[in-house]
Design a protein around this nucleic acid. Structure first.
Lengths: 182, 182
DNA sequence: GGCCGTTGTGCAACTAGTTGCACAATCGGT
DNA sequence: ACCGATTGTGCAACTAGTTGCACAACGGCC
C-alpha cells in the first residue's frame, strides 16, 4: 500500500520521469522503500489513471521518449491523508535470523561466510549514509523539512550501526562454536 | 522463499499440527518470520505434496481433527541446503520512515501520535524478549543450540532497543517543530 | 438435547512485489 | 550510413503474502 505514496512524495519533491524516479529511489527514498523500474512505471500508469498525477506536456510523447510527471492536487491530498492516518507496523521478516534458527537444528555450515558478507554490506551502507549526513546536514540544519530528513537518515545510520555490532558479535560467537553443531 | 523453511525448522524442533505451529509462530519464530494460519496450512499441504514432511498416522483423519506433521529426511536435507546457501538481503521497506519523508512535504499532522503508538509496541515487545531471555538463558547457557537461539534473541532485543531510542529521539524533535510544517 | 463459543482445518480471491523480456530512441565511433 | 552500447519505457507471467470466509468437531451449560 505504500509504493504509490513513495512515488507521490518523490514527485512532490521534484517532478520526474520514470527513469529519474528509479535513479532517485536508488539513492534516497529507496533506502527504506525500494522499487524496481518496472514497479515504478506500472505505478505511474495507475496514478495517472486515477488522476493523482499527470504527464507534463511534451512535444513528442512516444515510446523511448522521456516523459515527466507532476503531482495534481488530488494526489497531494491523497498523500496527506495517507500520511496522517495511523498504520500498524508490518510483521517482521528477517531471513538471516531465520537461518540462524534453522542452523541450530541442521548445522551452521555456510552461515559464517554469509554473516561476513552481510557485515560488509552494512558497513558500506553506513559509510554511504555518513557521507550524506556530512554533505547535507553538516551544521545548523534548521528548517522543519531538513530536520525530518535528518531524522530519517539518523534511523538509517543507527540501524546500520546496530547490525554491524550484532553481526560482529555473532561472528565472535561462531568462532567459539564447535565446528559442526547440527 | 522462506516460509517453507521456517515451517521445516519449527517442525524439526517439534512435530506439530497446523494450529500448534500457528501458536508457536506467534511467540517464537514468528518474531522474525510471521505467518498466518492460512499461510501455514497451505504451506503444510505443499510440503506434504513435495514429500518433505508427512502427516503422523492417526485414527480418524477428518476435517476438524488434529493432524500432526513430521519432517522427512528429504525435508531436513532441503532445509540444510537452504541454510548453507548464501542469500542476498532483501531490500528494506519501512512505512514509518517513508511517512516521515512524506510528512516533510505534506505536513506532520497525525505522525506524533503514531510515533507514540509504535514506541509503546516496541516497548512491549522488548519486555517480552527480556522475559524470554531471563526465563531461557538465565545463566551459563552452553550448548551450541542454546547459543544460537540466544544470539537471535539478542538481535531482537537490540533491535527493539534501537527503535525505542530512535522513536524517543524523534518525539523530542517533534516537540521542537513548528505546529505545521508542510 | 439443543445452543454456543472455542478449537482446528481449509479454500478462494485479492494485493503487492519480482523476474524476464521486448522494443524504441539516441549518441558515439568508424 | 551503419552498428552497437546506453538510455528510457513498458508488458506479461510469476511468486509470496493477505483477507475473508466456510465449515466440522468438541466441550460445557442451562
Amino acid at each position: 500500500m505504500s509504493l504509490p505514496h513513495a512515488i507521490l512524495t518523490a514527485l512532490l519533491e521534484k517532478p520526474s520521469s520514470g527513469l529519474e524516479l528509479t535513479r532517485r529511489f536508488d539513492k534516497s527514498i529507496g533506502y527504506f522503500w525500494s522499487a524496481t523500474h518496472q514497479q515504478i512505471y506500472r505505478e505511474l500508469g495507475r496514478l495517472e489513471g486515477e488522476g493523482l498525477i499527470r504527464a507534463l506536456p511534451t512535444e513528442q510523447p512516444a515510446r523511448g521518449q522521456k516523459k515527466s510527471y507532476e503531482v495534481l492536487p488530488a494526489g497531494r491530498a491523497e498523500l496527506a491523508r495517507w500520511t496522517a492516518a495511523s498504520q500498524d507496523p508490518k510483521p517482521a521478516r528477517d531471513a538471516l535470523l531465520l537461518r540462524l534458527r534453522a542452523a541450530a537444528v541442521v548445522g551452521t555450515e555456510g552461515i559464517a561466510a554469509d554473516l561476513r558478507h552481510h557485515l560488509a554490506l552494512h558497513q558500506r551502507q553506513l559509510a554511504e549514509y555518513q557521507e550524506i549526513e556530512e554533505r547535507d546536514f553538516g551544521f545548523g540544519t534548521d528548517s522543519a523539512q531538513a530536520r525530518l530528513h535528518h531524522l530519517v537518515l539518523r534511523a538509517g545510520i543507527d540501524l546500520e550501526t546496530f547490525w554491524i555490532q550484532w553481526l560482529t558479535h555473532a561472528l565472535g560467537e561462531f568462532e567459539q562454536l564447535p565446528a559442526e553443531s547440527g
